[in-house]
Every structure is written in C-alpha cells, then in structure tokens.
Design a binder for these strands. Sequence first.
DNA 1: GGCGCGACGGCAATGGGTTGCCATGTATTG
DNA 2: CAATACATGGCAACCCATTGCCGTCGCGCC
Lengths: 364, 364
Amino acid sequence: MPDHTRPPDKRVTIYDVAIEADVSPSTVSRAFSRPSRVNSETAERVRQVAERLGYRTNPLARTLSTARTHMIALVIADITNPVYAEIVRGAQEAATDGEYTTVLIDAQESDRRERAAIERTMPTVDGIVLASSRMSDSAIRMFAKQRPVVVLNRAIADVPCLVTDNPRGVRRAVEHLGELGHDHITYVAGPEASWPNGIRWRSLLEAGMELEIKVRQIGPFSPTIAGGERAAEELCARPATAVLAFNDQMAIGLIRGLGRRGVDIPGDVSIVGFDNIVAADLVTPGLTTVAAPLYAEGSAATRHLLTMIEGAPGHTGRPMVLPVRLVVRHSTAARRSAGRARPWVRQQPAPDPAVPAGWTRRFP
Amino acid sequence: MPDHTRPPDKRVTIYDVAIEADVSPSTVSRAFSRPSRVNSETAERVRQVAERLGYRTNPLARTLSTARTHMIALVIADITNPVYAEIVRGAQEAATDGEYTTVLIDAQESDRRERAAIERTMPTVDGIVLASSRMSDSAIRMFAKQRPVVVLNRAIADVPCLVTDNPRGVRRAVEHLGELGHDHITYVAGPEASWPNGIRWRSLLEAGMELEIKVRQIGPFSPTIAGGERAAEELCARPATAVLAFNDQMAIGLIRGLGRRGVDIPGDVSIVGFDNIVAADLVTPGLTTVAAPLYAEGSAATRHLLTMIEGAPGHTGRPMVLPVRLVVRHSTAARRSAGRARPWVRQQPAPDPAVPAGWTRRFP
DNA sequence: GGCGCGACGGCAATGGGTTGCCATGTATTG
DNA sequence: CAATACATGGCAACCCATTGCCGTCGCGCC
C-alpha cells in the first residue's frame, strides 16, 4: 500500500532508502552508481526498497560531488537559419544517447552575445559544441582551456574541429558554372567573422585560378534573406553572369532582389548557394546549392565531445572533414551570350496582382 | 599582483573570499545573494576581494541548497519547423533577462519522445514551457503538478495557457475567401494530437455556419511539406476551390503538390495557411496565411513561467490569448467560375528543364 | 594453525553555497 | 533613562550523493 504518512513534497533520498533497507547510505549510493562494488543480493534489496519508496537519484546532488553535470552546450549563430535545425537534431540525438542534456544557445550572429552566453553557461556544462562561432580564435581557445570544446565549421589549431569539405564544394560549384560557359564568378560574401566565409572565398580564388575563371567579391552582407536582397542592389551596379553566395539564405535574397528588378534567373545570372536548406527547393527558380550532411555534423561533433568529456584526448590534428555535394536545381543555366558581361536588360518587373483593400500585403 | 601560489585548477570559493575579506562565509554569500542583508561597505569590500580573487559563484552548489537550478525547459514539437525559431528566440530572451538558462527539447512530433525527454529533464529544471505539446491533457497535468508549467498553443483547464486567437484567425481567413466568392472550404488537417488542429477545424465549422460557407475536412496529414504533398494527392480525388491548411508547411506542400499536377493556384484553388513562416513569402505564389506573434508567444510564456517559479500563482483561468492577423499574398484569388466546384482542368505540368547529366536533381 | 587476500559495508569527509537562529551593538521611542 | 526595534554578522545545520579509507569476516593456502 502506498505511504500516506510522508509529506509528498519531501523528496526521497538515499538516507530514507538506507533506513528502510537497513544499510548505510553509502551502500545505497553504490548500489546505483557502482553495483559491482556491493553484494548482488544487497543491491537487489536496495533497488527494490528504492523502487517501493519512489526514490530517484538527485542529479543535482550528484553533480556537486562528481563535478559532472551531464549537460553540454550547443552554440549556434542564428536559430532563425534553418541550417541549424538538422545540426541541433543530430547533436541532441547524440547527446541523449550518451545520457546528456543539451542547452541551446542562440548567439544571434553576435560575438558579444555569444561570449556572454557561454560565460554564463560554462560553469553548468561539461562541454561545448560551437557551431559556426563568430568569436575570435583566441576567445575560443580560452574556452577550450576550461572545458572540452568541439568546433563545427571552422578550423582552429589545437582545438578539435569538424568541417565540411568547403574546397571541394566550391570546386564542384565552379566546375558546374564553368561547364555552363561562365568565365566570371562573383562571390557574395557573408559575415567576415564567419570562418566558412573566408575559406569559401579562398577556395573560389584557387578554383578560379586552376579553371581559368575570373572571380571577384562583393560584400560582406548579413547572411540572411535581407542581406541577399541588399547584395542584389549592389550587384545591379556591377552586373555578373554567375554568382556564388555565402549561403542559401543570401542566395534566396539575391533571387528575390534580382527578380524584383527584372533580372532573369538563370537567364541573366546563375546563382549558387550553400547549405541546401529546405527553402532552396521552394523558391522559384529552385536554388542550385552545395549540400552538407547537417545531421551528421551535429551528431559527430557531439559524439566526439562526449568522448572528450569521458577523458579521451580530443582530436586536435587537422580537422575532421565531412563530404559535401552539389545539388543542381534551376538557378543555374548556360550563359546566354558568349561575350562580355553586358548590363542587364531591365525588364518591367511583374506588377503586383491586385489585393483587396484593407488586407495587409506583407507582414513587417 | 596575481596570486601564483594557488593551484589554478582549484576553484575560488566563498571560503577563500571570506578569509581574505576577514568576514565569515555566510557574509560573503549574502553579499552576493541578498546584498540588502549586509552593510553596504562590507558588501563592497567583499565584492572587491571576490573580484581580485576571481571568485565566481558556483551555480551548482547554489542549486543544491536553494533547490533552484535557474534553468527552464522549452519543449517544441519539431525543431525543423521554422515557426519555432522565433518562439525559441522569444523564450530565450525572456529567460536570459530573468537570469535563467533554457534547455531545448525537440519532441520530433512524438508523444513518447516528448514524455521521455521531459521526465529525464524535469529534475534539473525549475519549470517548463510546452510549445505545441503532443501529449495528452492528463500527462501535461501530471507534469504541471510537479513543476510550474506554461502551455503554449493549447488550452488545458487548471494549467496556465497561452494561445493565439485561432477562432479570429480562421474567421478572417474565411471572410477573405468568402469575399473572393468561395462558398466551399476544405480543411486539410494536421496531427490529431495537435490542439490548434482541433480548434481550427471547430472554428472553421463555426465560421462556415455563420457565413454560410460549406466546410469539409481531409486528413490528418503530417504537418510538414511532405504531408502537404500527400494531401495534394488526396485533394485531387475530391477537388476544392478553397483550402485552409493546418499550417504553412502543409500549405506549401499543397502548393507544390498541386502545382506539379498542373493545378493552377490561385486560379483553380485558393490556399490559406497558418503561421506565416518565412517560406510563406518565398514560394510561388506567395502564401496567404494567418500570422501569429511568435516572438511574443515565446517571450510571454516564459515570462509567465518565471513569475510562477518565483512563487506567483499562475494564471489558470481561461487562457491568455494573443492576436493574429491575416497576411494576404497571392495564393488566394476570386473564384474563377460561379458554378459548382468542377473537376480541375489537368494541364500539362511544366516540363523539368534539362539538367546536365551526372548532377543530382534533388537531395534526398 | 597462521597468514594473506578479497569481498563487503560503514564512517566520515567532501563539494560550495544558503539560511534559520542567535548575539551584539546601535538607533529610536515613550 | 529604560525599553524596544533594527541593523549587522557569525554559527552551524542543511541540501544529497559520492568516495577514500578502514574494519570485519570468511576463505584458501602453506
């Protein structure tokens, strides 16, 4: 029969179980945390009593003596960017498998916020996965000294890193554009603090060199749709026939921004993005983009972090690299004219179909 | 000068500060946790010593005696659904303002996972925000007995709830469709375990009754783009001229699924969604949808949770309700013919523009 | 029989703040 | 001036599980 005497708000502790099972609290503790250290019959009895009393080990108390919280922090640059959804999922799955809980930190693309949040959270987590950090290398190294850290999408000496194969991704994109007859590619840059931004540009320089395709850069712009739309403005001043955007959100912004100005995609300009977010398949035209195994990124980074927390040394040589692939959709096409890039023909943009008065056209 | 004698791996505790400041540990503790309880000069001195020694209060230790972890759990149905991004952001912002840390739990649309994750996390958080829970009312009530809980997008008696004004949203959508000449609306249902799904359908019934518009329902389907595409198949068997989808993702799936079958949107069918996710503005045609103040939802729910954690009673009357508004884009239009719904003219779907051989057409 | 060893379980310290209660000293009030 | 109130700070118990160390006991071996 259930125990109605004990006030229900009082937690059951190992001491309660100890009294009931007629052993010492340490035995109860050991019965759970190191069963091999106690006679199996005793352990069984303790477990039964614990069950009967509804004992649940208090993770907070455990934390205090073991100095392990069984929590990890996952820091992402911008939760609004759908790339992170799959990364988060992969990380959570891996963490849960290892009996760890994930604390998500959204840095909102801000170095300052990121640092502040990590500093606040650091004491309560056993390790950190930094996905696309905007902090400086030295800041990251500092954190890495205090806790196990795995860095995603960035290579930093002496810190375990996991990156996608940006050079190959860029190379594939450039080859693709080259095959379509493009001999100039404009890179639309994302945040300067973003490591992938740097490596993508450098990879583009290199690929351009090898394949004899001229490259140039505009930006930086915010890595968002709005950022891409701003880039579209700028691009109008210096037209291009092929564009490689830092990420899909910017590429989508470009498609929209250029589209509104009457530029035909892919007729006038071919556009390639990075990430293969869901929306890449939703815009018109569908966006050609370099896809990365997002789920695997989150999962692998987290698994590696957990081994480090368990005491493994942490893979600090060259970064582990994950493969990418080019997904071709409809935002890229053969170059229309073989001559020099000519100013775009400004067509009349399609007029906005009438909307009943009184209805909001766009949500601000 | 810095202290080089103390081993660097040893944390500075209140005891160290106490000795150095020549007060008792309790005074140090109070200097930080209840400054009013100690002379301001003493407090200042303690703070300076603490600063000099690099003391940082250990949240884990605090946790053990106060039984407050200063963490809350935010449970969302599917991190892949962009609606949650803004909700998460609002929640995080509010939590951070209140010095709380957020643990994100992605239930992956599964009742079972959701329960399991909450049970695991419960002991380490002070409260829970349930955004679009798929659990049963009774399960939620059970959790609510153990910890402060605020429920988002759902109304449950005796549990503080926050909902958006679904009836009004539906009403607006129906009025809009009515003005466009539609006299039949098909509701494409989402998960049965989703509360908004139920209320939206009921609201539609009611609005239809009042405005003399016939309604019917198909589904349920998964609340994803894929789900919407499946719904499109089914819809082809029983054509409609106006569709209200459970959410934007399904609506987008419908647009694509129907589009592929040569159905003209909005010419043949008008489609309205819910949520106003970013992608609603990206698809062609742009999706008319009912927008909710997502950031405010997350923020308000969290703020309310924090007051409950601080001891406030929790608003358990009728749920608090947040306003919505209809965002009209291009997926809705005047009904083409005034007669009965006629079978759709199956146009030839636009052929897929050629793609260089060897390139992946779509990322699986 | 004597010695050594392993299995088992208990004691008590530990982790780092928090807080109820009491002691002291100062300020206020009648 | 006595009496009460308040401000301040210390003591020690407490939160709860973990773990190093030690004692006991039984068994096996020489």
